[in-house]
Design a protein around this nucleic acid. Sequence first.
DNA 1: TCAATATCGAGAAATATTTCTCGATATTAA
DNA 2: TTAATATCGAGAAATATTTCTCGATATTGA
Lengths: 269, 269
Amino acid sequence: MKRLIFDARLKSVPEPTLRRLPMYYRYLKELQKEHWSSVSCTNIGEEFRFEPTQVRKDLEMTGIVGKPRVGYPVAALIAAIKQFLGFNNVNEAFLVGAGSMGSALIGYNKFQEYGLNIVQVFDNDPSKIGKQVHGKTILALDKLPEMARQMRILIGIIAVPAAAAQDVTDLMLSGGICALWNFAPARLQVPDSIIVHNEDLYCSLASLSQKVAQALRSREKVEPSPLPVQATGKEDNLTNARGVYAQTQNKLRLPDLDDRMPGDEVLRN
Amino acid sequence: MKRLIFDARLKSVPEPTLRRLPMYYRYLKELQKEHWSSVSCTNIGEEFRFEPTQVRKDLEMTGIVGKPRVGYPVAALIAAIKQFLGFNNVNEAFLVGAGSMGSALIGYNKFQEYGLNIVQVFDNDPSKIGKQVHGKTILALDKLPEMARQMRILIGIIAVPAAAAQDVTDLMLSGGICALWNFAPARLQVPDSIIVHNEDLYCSLASLSQKVAQALRSREKVEPSPLPVQATGKEDNLTNARGVYAQTQNKLRLPDLDDRMPGDEVLRN
DNA sequence: TCAATATCGAGAAATATTTCTCGATATTAA
DNA sequence: TTAATATCGAGAAATATTTCTCGATATTGA
């Protein structure tokens, strides 16, 4: 039976902080372009509609020290976040799946600024092998393990249909890859030592869907005013107490059982 | 000055719950395929390595009622989650940006099962207009507001470069769209009444990056003694106290040249 | 110089979320 | 039938996260 014992050695970065820091990072880069020399938590908080104290606590994690009445030097703050989030040591990654999602990812040209460099692209479709996507040649999937081992690749990006995701995962792990960024709508079975970061658009859509449904329900109930919701987009993708509060609770109608059987989990290639 | 006053009327769905429910949903569909008739919180918890109680609290939000010693009927539970997340009332959406990300999104063929139906695709590149993507004809962007109004579209999907995102947003809002799914790496300025759901891959990558960096750091510090690790990929994308703690402690297992894996598995064709 | 003020840093308080505990109940097996 | 047991539901406890408070300090302007 597991116990609720707090162990300070295990203290870590709060997930919400980890989601907000990159947002600050980009904003700070904008400020830098506009030649701001320093910035306060109030400034940042206003931009994102967060409490200044929350911003301050987040920044505290990076080890930066500010000055009362002034704030933080923009350049130093950017550097601190960059260091903290690990953008300085860029890791090389292999991507599997040269379909439209894979191609879209390869097209992202600033992953390097966030610590990621996609160095090879793989697919198992013979008609794709040898062709180029955004300047990168597609290689045969079965070459992945050996190459990953030789190049000491740490990160694998999975952009294949759900049905193939587990096989690709196994292949990556056999090549020594130990962190996965998974775009397939599937749960991956991996050992505990492997870092998995799921980017499941169906799951992400679900929360949007719920918010829209809730907004529609409260619109029907309250009045035909077209603006029923109070949450702001800037608060989204976060755990923010006020944002959560802002959502109104609605009672459910009874479940109706006309649930169609799903098709298979396969993304189009 | 805002106050910390709790108002039960504003009580709402916890964000973490909202992220977990869709995961359960897909898993339950798998169980249904395997002809499970009922499922317990213990079953679900084991699959995702969550505490059964947490699963129970999550399911409670949907209004489902279970039986002691038995669990929940699978079909009814699926229906309850579906209803709760708003998958039953499918909303029509417009998508702007027929680039690689836009194409990838149009290719997702099961958004309908999650409450979303992409009905029109727009772009402002004359060379793309009139062409088809996954069977959908690309229309000129300037037709969006009028069509959105006529068709009473509520949801807009933004898959354009960051520089164009705000303009597209304004155009969508002028057409009466009130919920945005934003794939552009940019903050959108919108009124408080608008729901914005950001899908910023750079920000998402940041948290993976931080975890990899931390794992590498702690590996260097702690020495090559393989400490017991508790994090699992399945816990990812969540705020889970134990998971968060565990991730901190995660020691990345780095590839080792001596560690040959003869007979690498190869994907079936 | 000195008062006014914005902001930081730290710690306390409030709120959210997770985990534990326990009584009730349905199923299984003796 | 009855005992053993797994699980639910609800509420309490523990832990996480956010928000508040306050003393200290740097800047601005009188």
